[in-house]
Design a protein around this nucleic acid. Structure first.
Lengths: 145, 145
DNA sequence: TTTTCATGTAACAAACAATAGTACATGAAA
DNA sequence: TTTCATGTACTATTGTTTGTTACATGAAAA
Protein backbone atom coordinates (compact mmCIF):
# COMPACT_ATOMS: atom_id res chain seq x y z
CA UNK A 1 0.00 0.00 0.00
CA UNK A 2 1.31 3.40 -0.89
CA UNK A 3 1.71 5.40 2.28
CA UNK A 4 0.03 8.73 2.81
CA UNK A 5 2.60 11.34 3.77
CA UNK A 6 0.34 14.36 4.10
CA UNK A 7 0.76 14.59 7.86
CA UNK A 8 4.52 14.39 7.63
CA UNK A 9 4.60 16.89 4.77
CA UNK A 10 2.30 19.40 6.42
CA UNK A 11 4.26 19.34 9.65
CA UNK A 12 7.44 19.86 7.68
CA UNK A 13 6.24 23.00 5.95
CA UNK A 14 4.55 24.31 9.10
CA UNK A 15 7.87 24.26 10.93
CA UNK A 16 9.58 26.04 8.08
CA UNK A 17 6.85 28.65 8.18
CA UNK A 18 7.26 28.95 11.94
CA UNK A 19 10.96 29.65 11.56
CA UNK A 20 10.54 32.21 8.82
CA UNK A 21 9.93 35.82 9.73
CA UNK A 22 7.91 36.42 6.60
CA UNK A 23 5.33 34.70 4.41
CA UNK A 24 6.66 31.87 2.29
CA UNK A 25 5.27 31.18 -1.18
CA UNK A 26 3.97 27.83 -2.31
CA UNK A 27 7.00 27.58 -4.56
CA UNK A 28 9.37 28.02 -1.65
CA UNK A 29 7.53 25.50 0.48
CA UNK A 30 7.39 23.08 -2.43
CA UNK A 31 11.17 23.31 -2.73
CA UNK A 32 11.52 22.10 0.88
CA UNK A 33 9.42 19.05 0.01
CA UNK A 34 10.96 18.59 -3.43
CA UNK A 35 7.55 18.74 -4.99
CA UNK A 36 5.13 20.94 -6.85
CA UNK A 37 3.60 24.19 -5.60
CA UNK A 38 0.10 22.96 -6.38
CA UNK A 39 0.60 20.05 -4.03
CA UNK A 40 1.45 22.50 -1.25
CA UNK A 41 -1.63 24.61 -1.90
CA UNK A 42 -3.81 21.55 -1.77
CA UNK A 43 -2.22 20.35 1.45
CA UNK A 44 -2.60 23.68 3.20
CA UNK A 45 -6.10 24.51 1.99
CA UNK A 46 -7.71 22.60 4.84
CA UNK A 47 -5.48 24.19 7.44
CA UNK A 48 -6.40 27.64 6.18
CA UNK A 49 -10.10 26.89 6.54
CA UNK A 50 -9.48 25.84 10.14
CA UNK A 51 -7.51 29.01 10.88
CA UNK A 52 -4.09 27.44 11.46
CA UNK A 53 -2.50 29.28 8.53
CA UNK A 54 -3.31 32.13 6.20
CA UNK A 55 -2.51 32.73 2.57
CA UNK A 56 -2.14 36.06 0.79
CA UNK A 57 -2.20 36.61 -2.94
CA UNK A 58 -0.02 38.88 -5.02
CA UNK A 59 3.29 40.62 -4.41
CA UNK A 60 4.82 39.75 -1.06
CA UNK A 61 2.12 37.15 -0.56
CA UNK A 62 2.44 33.58 0.59
CA UNK A 63 1.70 31.44 3.60
CA UNK A 64 2.11 32.19 7.28
CA UNK A 65 1.14 30.58 10.57
CA UNK A 66 -1.75 32.18 12.43
CA UNK A 67 -2.06 29.86 15.41
CA UNK A 68 -0.25 29.50 18.74
CA UNK A 69 2.35 26.76 18.36
CA UNK A 70 1.99 25.93 22.04
CA UNK A 71 -1.72 25.27 21.71
CA UNK A 72 -1.79 23.11 18.60
CA UNK A 73 -0.91 19.42 18.78
CA UNK A 74 0.03 16.88 16.14
CA UNK A 75 -3.41 15.41 16.64
CA UNK A 76 -4.98 18.71 15.59
CA UNK A 77 -2.91 18.70 12.42
CA UNK A 78 -3.78 15.06 11.81
CA UNK A 79 -7.43 16.04 11.93
CA UNK A 80 -6.79 19.11 9.80
CA UNK A 81 -5.32 17.06 6.96
CA UNK A 82 -8.48 14.98 6.93
CA UNK A 83 -7.80 12.26 9.52
CA UNK A 84 -6.25 9.95 6.96
CA UNK A 85 -6.80 6.28 7.69
CA UNK A 86 -4.27 5.02 10.18
CA UNK A 87 -3.82 1.40 9.17
CA UNK A 88 -2.63 -0.24 6.01
CA UNK A 89 -4.54 -3.40 6.86
CA UNK A 90 -8.26 -3.85 6.61
CA UNK A 91 -11.06 -6.32 6.43
CA UNK A 92 -11.78 -8.17 3.28
CA UNK A 93 -15.51 -7.52 3.69
CA UNK A 94 -16.71 -4.74 5.95
CA UNK A 95 -20.07 -6.10 7.11
CA UNK A 96 -19.96 -9.81 6.39
CA UNK A 97 -22.84 -12.25 6.64
CA UNK A 98 -20.41 -15.05 7.30
CA UNK A 99 -20.17 -15.76 11.04
CA UNK A 100 -16.55 -16.78 10.70
CA UNK A 101 -15.64 -13.50 9.12
CA UNK A 102 -17.61 -11.63 11.75
CA UNK A 103 -15.56 -13.29 14.47
CA UNK A 104 -12.32 -12.47 12.65
CA UNK A 105 -13.30 -8.87 12.05
CA UNK A 106 -14.24 -8.28 15.64
CA UNK A 107 -11.00 -9.71 17.00
CA UNK A 108 -8.94 -7.58 14.65
CA UNK A 109 -11.07 -4.51 15.30
CA UNK A 110 -10.40 -4.68 19.01
CA UNK A 111 -6.66 -4.78 18.49
CA UNK A 112 -6.70 -1.98 15.93
CA UNK A 113 -9.02 0.16 18.01
CA UNK A 114 -6.67 0.07 20.99
CA UNK A 115 -3.64 0.80 18.85
CA UNK A 116 -5.32 3.72 17.14
CA UNK A 117 -6.42 5.19 20.47
CA UNK A 118 -2.85 5.07 21.73
CA UNK A 119 -1.57 6.67 18.55
CA UNK A 120 -4.03 9.55 18.86
CA UNK A 121 -3.09 9.96 22.50
CA UNK A 122 0.59 10.19 21.62
CA UNK A 123 -0.10 12.70 18.87
CA UNK A 124 -2.13 14.77 21.33
CA UNK A 125 0.86 14.93 23.64
CA UNK A 126 3.11 16.76 21.20
CA UNK A 127 2.62 20.42 20.28
CA UNK A 128 4.04 22.24 17.31
CA UNK A 129 6.11 24.20 19.83
CA UNK A 130 7.66 20.93 21.01
CA UNK A 131 8.64 20.12 17.46
CA UNK A 132 10.04 23.59 17.00
CA UNK A 133 12.12 23.25 20.16
CA UNK A 134 13.41 19.90 18.97
CA UNK A 135 14.46 21.46 15.70
CA UNK A 136 16.28 24.27 17.52
CA UNK A 137 18.11 21.71 19.61
CA UNK A 138 19.21 19.85 16.50
CA UNK A 139 20.28 23.10 14.92
CA UNK A 140 22.48 24.05 17.88
CA UNK A 141 24.10 20.61 17.91
CA UNK A 142 24.86 20.74 14.20
CA UNK A 143 26.25 24.27 14.49
CA UNK A 144 28.71 23.12 17.16
CA UNK A 145 30.00 20.29 15.02
CA UNK B 1 -4.62 3.80 -0.01
CA UNK B 2 -5.77 0.34 -0.81
CA UNK B 3 -5.76 -1.73 2.35
CA UNK B 4 -3.99 -5.06 2.63
CA UNK B 5 -6.47 -7.72 3.70
CA UNK B 6 -4.21 -10.75 3.71
CA UNK B 7 -4.34 -11.15 7.48
CA UNK B 8 -8.11 -10.94 7.56
CA UNK B 9 -8.44 -13.31 4.62
CA UNK B 10 -6.04 -15.89 5.95
CA UNK B 11 -7.72 -15.97 9.35
CA UNK B 12 -11.05 -16.38 7.63
CA UNK B 13 -10.01 -19.46 5.67
CA UNK B 14 -8.08 -20.91 8.61
CA UNK B 15 -11.23 -20.93 10.71
CA UNK B 16 -13.20 -22.57 7.94
CA UNK B 17 -10.49 -25.20 7.72
CA UNK B 18 -10.57 -25.66 11.48
CA UNK B 19 -14.29 -26.33 11.39
CA UNK B 20 -14.14 -28.75 8.53
CA UNK B 21 -13.50 -32.41 9.22
CA UNK B 22 -11.74 -32.88 5.93
CA UNK B 23 -9.33 -31.07 3.61
CA UNK B 24 -10.81 -28.13 1.71
CA UNK B 25 -9.74 -27.33 -1.81
CA UNK B 26 -8.50 -23.95 -2.94
CA UNK B 27 -11.72 -23.59 -4.91
CA UNK B 28 -13.83 -24.13 -1.83
CA UNK B 29 -11.79 -21.72 0.25
CA UNK B 30 -11.88 -19.17 -2.57
CA UNK B 31 -15.67 -19.38 -2.55
CA UNK B 32 -15.71 -18.30 1.11
CA UNK B 33 -13.66 -15.25 0.18
CA UNK B 34 -15.47 -14.62 -3.11
CA UNK B 35 -12.22 -14.74 -4.96
CA UNK B 36 -10.00 -16.88 -7.10
CA UNK B 37 -8.40 -20.19 -6.10
CA UNK B 38 -4.98 -18.95 -7.12
CA UNK B 39 -5.27 -16.12 -4.63
CA UNK B 40 -5.87 -18.67 -1.88
CA UNK B 41 -2.88 -20.79 -2.88
CA UNK B 42 -0.65 -17.75 -2.86
CA UNK B 43 -1.96 -16.64 0.55
CA UNK B 44 -1.44 -20.04 2.14
CA UNK B 45 1.94 -20.83 0.60
CA UNK B 46 3.79 -19.02 3.38
CA UNK B 47 1.78 -20.73 6.09
CA UNK B 48 2.54 -24.11 4.63
CA UNK B 49 6.28 -23.40 4.71
CA UNK B 50 5.97 -22.50 8.39
CA UNK B 51 4.06 -25.69 9.15
CA UNK B 52 0.71 -24.15 10.09
CA UNK B 53 -1.14 -25.85 7.24
CA UNK B 54 -0.54 -28.60 4.73
CA UNK B 55 -1.67 -29.05 1.17
CA UNK B 56 -2.21 -32.28 -0.71
CA UNK B 57 -2.48 -32.67 -4.45
CA UNK B 58 -4.82 -34.86 -6.41
CA UNK B 59 -8.09 -36.58 -5.60
CA UNK B 60 -9.32 -35.88 -2.12
CA UNK B 61 -6.57 -33.32 -1.72
CA UNK B 62 -6.78 -29.79 -0.44
CA UNK B 63 -5.76 -27.78 2.61
CA UNK B 64 -5.86 -28.68 6.27
CA UNK B 65 -4.60 -27.24 9.52
CA UNK B 66 -1.57 -28.91 11.06
CA UNK B 67 -1.02 -26.72 14.10
CA UNK B 68 -2.53 -26.52 17.57
CA UNK B 69 -5.13 -23.77 17.54
CA UNK B 70 -4.47 -23.08 21.21
CA UNK B 71 -0.79 -22.41 20.59
CA UNK B 72 -0.97 -20.12 17.60
CA UNK B 73 -1.82 -16.45 18.00
CA UNK B 74 -2.95 -13.81 15.56
CA UNK B 75 0.52 -12.36 15.84
CA UNK B 76 1.99 -15.63 14.53
CA UNK B 77 -0.33 -15.46 11.55
CA UNK B 78 0.49 -11.81 11.03
CA UNK B 79 4.14 -12.79 10.80
CA UNK B 80 3.31 -15.76 8.60
CA UNK B 81 1.64 -13.60 5.99
CA UNK B 82 4.80 -11.50 5.79
CA UNK B 83 4.34 -8.90 8.55
CA UNK B 84 2.59 -6.47 6.22
CA UNK B 85 3.19 -2.85 7.07
CA UNK B 86 0.89 -1.68 9.81
CA UNK B 87 0.36 1.96 9.02
CA UNK B 88 -1.09 3.76 6.04
CA UNK B 89 0.90 6.88 6.86
CA UNK B 90 4.59 7.36 6.33
CA UNK B 91 7.38 9.84 6.04
CA UNK B 92 7.84 11.83 2.93
CA UNK B 93 11.59 11.18 3.03
CA UNK B 94 12.98 8.32 5.06
CA UNK B 95 16.41 9.65 5.99
CA UNK B 96 16.22 13.37 5.43
CA UNK B 97 19.11 15.83 5.54
CA UNK B 98 16.72 18.61 6.53
CA UNK B 99 16.80 19.10 10.31
CA UNK B 100 13.17 20.14 10.31
CA UNK B 101 12.14 16.92 8.67
CA UNK B 102 14.34 14.95 11.05
CA UNK B 103 12.49 16.48 14.00
CA UNK B 104 9.12 15.73 12.42
CA UNK B 105 10.06 12.15 11.58
CA UNK B 106 11.28 11.42 15.05
CA UNK B 107 8.17 12.76 16.73
CA UNK B 108 5.93 10.73 14.47
CA UNK B 109 8.10 7.64 14.79
CA UNK B 110 7.73 7.63 18.56
CA UNK B 111 3.95 7.75 18.34
CA UNK B 112 3.79 5.07 15.66
CA UNK B 113 6.27 2.83 17.44
CA UNK B 114 4.18 2.79 20.60
CA UNK B 115 0.97 2.15 18.68
CA UNK B 116 2.51 -0.69 16.72
CA UNK B 117 3.87 -2.31 19.88
CA UNK B 118 0.42 -2.24 21.42
CA UNK B 119 -1.12 -3.71 18.30
CA UNK B 120 1.34 -6.60 18.27
CA UNK B 121 0.72 -7.16 21.96
CA UNK B 122 -3.03 -7.35 21.38
CA UNK B 123 -2.58 -9.75 18.47
CA UNK B 124 -0.37 -11.92 20.64
CA UNK B 125 -3.16 -12.18 23.21
CA UNK B 126 -5.61 -13.90 20.87
CA UNK B 127 -5.21 -17.51 19.77
CA UNK B 128 -6.88 -19.21 16.85
CA UNK B 129 -8.75 -21.27 19.45
CA UNK B 130 -10.19 -18.05 20.88
CA UNK B 131 -11.44 -17.09 17.45
CA UNK B 132 -12.89 -20.52 16.96
CA UNK B 133 -14.70 -20.32 20.30
CA UNK B 134 -16.07 -16.93 19.37
CA UNK B 135 -17.38 -18.35 16.13
CA UNK B 136 -19.07 -21.22 17.98
CA UNK B 137 -20.72 -18.74 20.32
CA UNK B 138 -22.05 -16.75 17.38
CA UNK B 139 -23.27 -19.94 15.76
CA UNK B 140 -25.23 -21.00 18.85
CA UNK B 141 -26.82 -17.57 19.15
CA UNK B 142 -27.88 -17.55 15.53
CA UNK B 143 -29.27 -21.07 15.76
CA UNK B 144 -31.48 -20.05 18.67
CA UNK B 145 -32.96 -17.12 16.79
C1' DT C 1 -4.19 51.12 -15.93
C1' DT C 2 -1.22 47.49 -16.97
C1' DT C 3 2.10 44.25 -15.56
C1' DT C 4 3.77 41.00 -12.38
C1' DC C 5 3.34 37.89 -8.72
C1' DA C 6 0.89 34.77 -6.14
C1' DT C 7 -2.94 31.81 -4.79
C1' DG C 8 -7.36 28.64 -6.14
C1' DT C 9 -8.89 24.89 -8.43
C1' DA C 10 -10.34 21.71 -11.95
C1' DA C 11 -8.84 18.24 -14.94
C1' DC C 12 -5.64 15.06 -16.25
C1' DA C 13 -1.34 12.01 -15.99
C1' DA C 14 1.93 9.07 -13.74
C1' DA C 15 3.49 5.86 -10.34
C1' DC C 16 2.67 2.31 -7.34
C1' DA C 17 0.64 -1.54 -4.77
C1' DA C 18 -2.99 -4.96 -3.86
C1' DT C 19 -5.82 -8.07 -5.93
C1' DA C 20 -7.51 -10.85 -9.66
C1' DG C 21 -7.11 -13.84 -13.61
C1' DT C 22 -4.89 -16.96 -17.23
C1' DA C 23 -2.01 -20.53 -18.65
C1' DC C 24 0.49 -24.28 -18.05
C1' DA C 25 3.40 -27.54 -15.28
C1' DT C 26 3.47 -31.07 -11.55
C1' DG C 27 1.87 -34.75 -8.93
C1' DA C 28 -1.45 -38.04 -6.81
C1' DA C 29 -5.56 -40.90 -6.71
C1' DA C 30 -9.26 -43.19 -9.16
C1' DT D 1 -4.62 -42.86 -18.48
C1' DT D 2 -7.92 -39.80 -16.95
C1' DT D 3 -9.30 -36.69 -13.47
C1' DC D 4 -8.52 -33.74 -9.74
C1' DA D 5 -5.87 -30.59 -7.31
C1' DT D 6 -1.86 -27.78 -6.19
C1' DG D 7 2.46 -24.60 -7.82
C1' DT D 8 3.78 -20.75 -10.06
C1' DA D 9 5.03 -17.49 -13.64
C1' DC D 10 3.08 -13.89 -16.14
C1' DT D 11 -0.24 -10.47 -17.07
C1' DA D 12 -4.36 -7.53 -16.19
C1' DT D 13 -7.26 -4.75 -13.29
C1' DT D 14 -8.30 -1.63 -9.82
C1' DG D 15 -7.70 2.01 -6.55
C1' DT D 16 -4.99 5.52 -4.25
C1' DT D 17 -1.42 8.91 -3.83
C1' DT D 18 1.20 12.09 -5.93
C1' DG D 19 2.50 15.07 -9.66
C1' DT D 20 1.46 18.24 -13.65
C1' DT D 21 -0.83 21.40 -16.67
C1' DA D 22 -3.89 25.01 -17.55
C1' DC D 23 -6.36 28.75 -16.52
C1' DA D 24 -9.06 31.87 -13.39
C1' DT D 25 -8.77 35.19 -9.49
C1' DG D 26 -6.95 38.79 -6.86
C1' DA D 27 -3.46 42.06 -4.97
C1' DA D 28 0.62 44.94 -5.19
C1' DA D 29 3.93 47.40 -7.95
C1' DA D 30 5.31 49.97 -12.02
Amino acid sequence: MKKDSKLSSVLHVLLHMAHSGQPLTSEQLAAFLHTNAVVVRRMLAGLRELGYVDSVKGHGGGWSITCDLKQVTLRDIYDAVGTPSVFAMGHRVEDPQCLVEQAVNQALDEAFRDAEALLIERLSDVTLADLSDDFNRRFRIQSQA
